[in-house]
Write a protein that binds this DNA or RNA. Structure first.
Length: 367
DNA sequence: AACCCGGGGAA
DNA sequence: TTCCCAGGGTT
C-alpha cells in the first residue's frame, strides 16, 4: 500500500498533469470499462511493447478469450498462437496460468490486493499496481519505464533507473506524489504523458504542461536523463536453413520446450555460415531421421533477425527428401517413425501452427 | 545483480 | 545501426 499524502503536500504538477490527461488522454479499448481482466490483458500485452503494436492483438484476444473463464479453458497452444508475432511468449503462457489461478482460487474474481495480485503468474509489481489502480481505483503505484524516465527528469535523479537504487528511490517518490482521489487516472496520465511529450529522446519540453516543475528542465539536463546502463552486446549466429520437401510435405522441427522461441516450429537448420558446411550438417541431422537429402545450392532467401541478445544470420536453401524405408511407405507411416519434435506438413496447413519468429517469414517461399 | 526472453518503430 | 518500449522469471 502506498503512503498517504495530504493535499498540502501534493506537488503542483500532479493536478496539472491530471488536467492535461483529462483533455489529451488516448481512447483505448480497455479504458473506462472497469473490467480488471481486460486491463490485465492490456497491461501484459503492453510490456516492452508499444501500444500501436499490441492493439490488433488485444482486439483479437478479446474475441477469442473474452472472459477469465474462456482463457482459463484455452490450451497453451491456442494462447501462444494468438500471441504469435508479439514476442516474449512467456507473457502469454503466464497470463493463462495466472488467470487459471484466479478461476480456481479466487472464484474468477481478480484479487483486490497487491499481495494476492503479485502472487499470480506473470504479475509483478508494475502490473499489480496498474490493474489495482485502474480497475479498482486503489491507491497503488505502477512504476514502469515511463514513470522512471519522467520522475528521473522531474526530480533530477542521476541514479541508473535500471538498477535497484534508482528504481527504489523513484518508487518512493511516486508513492509520495500519488493522488489518492484519482490513482488510476494518475498512473495512466503518466503513460500518455511519457509516450507523447516526455519521450526518451528529444522530449518536447516546450509543449510540456509541467515544465515549470521539472528540475531537469530548469537545469538543462533533460537530454542526459534518465541514466541507463548499457546493455551487453548481442552475439551473431550464422544459420543455414533448409526448406526440404517429401512430395508436397515439408519437414518441420519443433524447438525444445526451454530457451529461445520454445516449443515453436521451424524449418530444419544448422549453425553454419556457408552452404557446404550447412549442407553437411543437415545431411547428418536428417540422415539420422531416415532421410536422404538433396539440397539445392541456390540460396532462396538471406535474412537477418535480431533478438535482444542474439542475432541470426540465416541463409535459406530448398531441398528434397528421399525416405530410406521401403518404397511403399506412405506419409502417415513415415510420420509415425519420426521423433515427436519432427513432422511432415503440407503448406496449406502452415497457418495452423506457431512459427519460431523469422521462420514464419520463410513460409511464403513454400508452395 | 545478471541474464534471459521478441519484435518493431523511430531516429 | 542503436535505442527502447505499459516487465517478469530464473539463477
Amino acid at each position: 500500500m502506498s503512503k498517504t499524502n495530504t493535499a498540502a503536500q501534493e506537488p503542483k504538477w500532479v493536478q496539472r498533469l491530471l488536467d492535461w490527461y483529462d483533455v489529451n488522454k488516448r481512447d483505448l479499448p480497455w479504458r473506462g470499462v472497469g473490467d480488471p481482466y481486460k486491463i490485465w490483458v492490456s497491461e501484459v500485452m503492453s510490456q516492452q511493447t508499444r501500444i500501436e503494436a499490441m492493439k490488433p492483438y488485444y482486439d483479437n484476444w478479446m474475441q477469442l478469450f473474452p472472459t477469465v473463464e474462456a482463457l482459463a479453458e484455452a490450451s497453451e497452444d491456442e494462447v501462444v498462437h494468438a500471441w504469435q508475432g508479439l514476442g516474449y511468449y512467456s507473457r502469454a503462457r503466464n497470463l493463462r496460468l495466472g488467470v487459471q489461478e484466479v478461476v480456481s482460487n479466487y472464484g474468477g474474481v481478480v484479487p483486490m490486493d497487491r499481495k494476492s495480485m503479485e502472487s499470480l503468474k506473470g504479475v509483478g509489481a508494475y502490473t499489480a499496481g496498474a490493474v489495482l489502480s485502474m480497475a479498482y481505483n486503489l491507491p497503488e503505484v505502477a512504476v514502469d519505464g515511463n514513470v522512471l524516465r519522467i520522475y528521473a527528469r522531474l526530480y533530477n535523479i542521476n541514479d541508473d533507473i535500471l538498477g535497484a537504487v534508482g528504481k527504489k528511490k523513484i518508487t518512493a517518490l511516486v508513492e509520495e506524489t500519488l493522488p489518492h482521489d484519482r490513482p488510476g487516472d494518475f498512473n495512466q496520465s503518466l503513460m500518455d504523458f511519457g509516450s507523447s511529450l516526455c519521450i526518451p529522446k528529444s522530449p518536447r519540453c516546450s509543449d510540456c504542461p509541467i515544465n515549470s516543475s521539472c528540475e531537469a528542465y530548469a537545469n538543462g539536463t533533460t537530454a542526459d536523463l534518465p541514466v541507463r546502463i548499457k546493455k551487453t552486446k548481442s552475439i551473431t549466429i550464422p544459420l543455414v536453413v533448409g526448406l526440404v520437401q517429401l512430395g508436397d510435405y515439408y519437414l518441420l522441427h519443433k524447438r525444445p520446450n526451454t530457451g529461445l522461441l520454445r516449443s515453436m516450429w521451424e524449418f530444419p537448420s544448422a549453425e553454419a555460415s556457408d552452404f557446404s558446411a550447412g549442407e553437411s550438417q543437415l545431411k547428418d541431422l536428417l540422415g539420422a531421421l531416415g532421410f536422404e537429402l538433396k539440397l539445392d545450392s541456390t540460396m532462396v532467401r538471406e535474412l537477418t533477425h535480431v533478438f535482444s541478445h542474439r542475432k541470426w544470420e540465416m541463409k535459406t536453401y530448398q531441398g528434397t527428401l528421399i525416405w530410406r524405408g521401403s518404397d511403399a511407405e506412405q506419409i502417415a507411416a513415415i510420420q509415425t517413425k519420426l521423433p515427436a519434435d519432427y513432422m511432415l506438413l503440407p503448406r496449406l496447413e502452415f497457418a495452423t501452427y506457431t512459427w519460431a519468429g523469422p521462420h514464419g517469414k520463410l513460409t511464403e517461399l513454400c508452395k
